[in-house]
């Protein structure tokens, strides 16, 4: 294809997106669109399955049967969501195994928040409330993103996730209304998860390299800073409601802007974790690689069995 032809196709493509038409897998798309989508969707999928680990850490120790089944179902949903997203990504011409390989070799990123440890039961509440809360803010706009399979996966994810945040908040609320020991546990979890949750919405707009392009392709509808503000504005009153204190001395309601002002985020910590030096980066990766490698003989067996059955059927047909 000549450069001029490509240019022409690109124009038609961009117009289509501007008209809110969806792009489907077999449609022509610019290479950059494909690559950007593979990167973002897979990063999202990886976050779901790595995100199973910190919460999975508490399934066997959940304090009641009701909490245990809720947590199991939630972590299972995350596996499901990872699966929907990997499937969406595969429509762009890359296999799940390649995507895993990118994760396992550190080439692909996942949400840094999952590199923090879950050290008390209250952390499960904090993750549901804050981390899922921040994730929902990120995800809802993606239900109308330009790439059809991604948008469809996100609709399913958002629908299923609606119980996740409630599950987390209910845990926090129960703790906050419980014994002094429980309330302290809840406050401690909020203290540790608050800042990482704010970081989860991405670097400031000034530092964010992908925003402009992503806005055009509807991979993003709002900037990181706008999303962060939205998250803070909706979460602070929830904390007030259950009598917990957001660990930010600079946090203050601003009548003029109609938003909360908040303190400085420690971006150095953010980049340290992104670069692989968070408290649990190694543990998370080891767990994923381990599951994959230890599962190889199982996956091989299933394929070998399927082949034998197929051959048997063929022989019987003859």
């Amino acid at each position: 294809m000549s450069e001029k032809e490509i240019k022409n196709l690109e124009e038609i493509f961009e117009q289509k997106i501007a008209r809110d038409e969806k792009i489907e897998p077999k449609d022509w798309m610019p290479e950059k669109y494909r690559k950007t989508h593979i990167r973002q969707i897979s990063q999202h999928a990886h976050s779901e399955i790595v995100g199973m680990l910190p919460e999975g850490n508490w399934i066997t120790r959940a304090p009641s049967l009701r909490r245990k089944v809720a947590l199991l179902a939630k972590v299972q949903d995350e596996a499901g969501h990872g699966l929907y997203l990997y499937s969406a990504c595969e429509t762009l011409g890359i296999s799940r195994d390649e995507l895993y390989n990118q994760l396992h070799t550190g080439k692909a990123k996942y949400s840094s928040i999952f590199n923090y440890p879950t050290i008390t039961w209250a952390d499960i509440g904090a993750i549901g409330w804050l981390v899922d809360g921040a994730a929902i803010i990120n995800q809802v706009p993606l239900c109308s993103t330009s790439y059809g399979p991604y948008a469809r996966a996100m609709i399913r994810v958002c629908k299923e996730e609606s119980f996740h945040q409630r599950q987390g908040f209910e845990i926090m609320m129960t703790l906050a209304n419980g014994t002094p020991e429980q309330k302290e546990m809840a406050q401690d979890a909020l203290n540790r998860w608050w800042w990482p949750s704010l970081m989860m919405l991405g670097p400031t707009d000034a530092e964010s390299v992908h925003t402009a392009q992503s806005m055009k392709w509807k991979l993003k509808r709002k900037t990181n800073d706008e999303l962060r503000q939205q998250f803070i504005d909706q979460t602070v009153p929830q904390a007030d409601l259950i009598g917990l204190t957001v660990p930010d001395p600079d946090l203050k309601w601003n009548e003029e802007t109609g938003h909360y002002d908040f303190g400085e985020i420690d971006w150095e910590e953010f980049w340290q974790v992104v670069k692989g030096h968070g408290p649990c980066n190694k543990e998370r990766m080891n767990a994923r690689v381990n599951a994959w490698e230890k599962g190889e003989w199982v996956r091989d067996a299933a394929m070998a069995y399927a082949k034998k059955q197929e051959d048997k059927k063929l022989r019987e047909a003859i």
């Binding site: 399955i49 680990l53 999975g56 399934i59 299972q76 596996a79 699966l83 599951a291 599962g295 996956r299």
Partner: peptide, 16 residues
């Protein structure tokens, strides 16, 4: 105990 550590996502979901 196995949730999140299965040989494939699909089997993980089934076990859960």
């Amino acid at each position: 105990e196995l949730c999140g550590h299965g040989p494939s996502l699909e089997t993980d979901i089934a076990g859960t």
